[in-house]
Amino acid sequence: MSAVSDFSDLIGRNLAAQPGYAALQSQLEAFYFLEADLLDNRRYRAWLDLLADDLTYYMPMRANVPLAHDRSDEFTTVGEGIHWFENDKWTVVKRVEQIETGIHYAEEPLSRITHMISNVRIVDAKPDLETAQQIAVTNRFLLYQNRIVDDTTTFVGRRHDRLRHNAGTGWQVHFREVIIEQGILQAKNITNFL
């Protein structure tokens, strides 16, 4: 799993000047803005179509560690131990089903939410940017959530995504790492998708 999850060698790459970058990036932005619209409008079933069947979607926990320490000290490692969550596609479908029961009280009444996605950057494309079938993307998210009266939470962070293109399904996310800029989570719950 580490090869898929490890973005450390990709973060510093700048492909922006290469042919095909702008076109692919605008496709990707359209993908993320669609995803945000689907989630914020509670079209969960349509949103599930944007996720590949072999999905790994996780949110590591973080700790305060000295500067020199390596990543596995600061972040929990996908495929090992406990995270905020580590979902496969089945589990994400379960989470959608749970909201749809109408008795999931942490999301009933539903929260009012807005996802903002920015800083979309393609850091890897295979075979190349112009004919890409597999890409790695970094971006930022902000999820504003308000529920009941004044129960308001803002989640801010980064996502490391890997997407795959299929003729039938278009782009789909098959790996997502959600990095939140908090160690001790300053929210009672994570009931919405990040």
Binding site: F85, E86, H104, A106, I148, N189, T191
Partner: peptide, 25 residues
């Protein structure tokens, strides 16, 4: 076990989310 624990427990746990909602309100 770790997969079961994560989908059940804590702030993103499908069971315990509803506990926290109760305690808050």
């Amino acid at each position: 076990l770790r997969h079961y624990y994560m989908r059940y427990s804590g702030p993103a746990g499908m069971t315990e989310q509803d506990d926290m909602e109760n305690w808050l309100y």
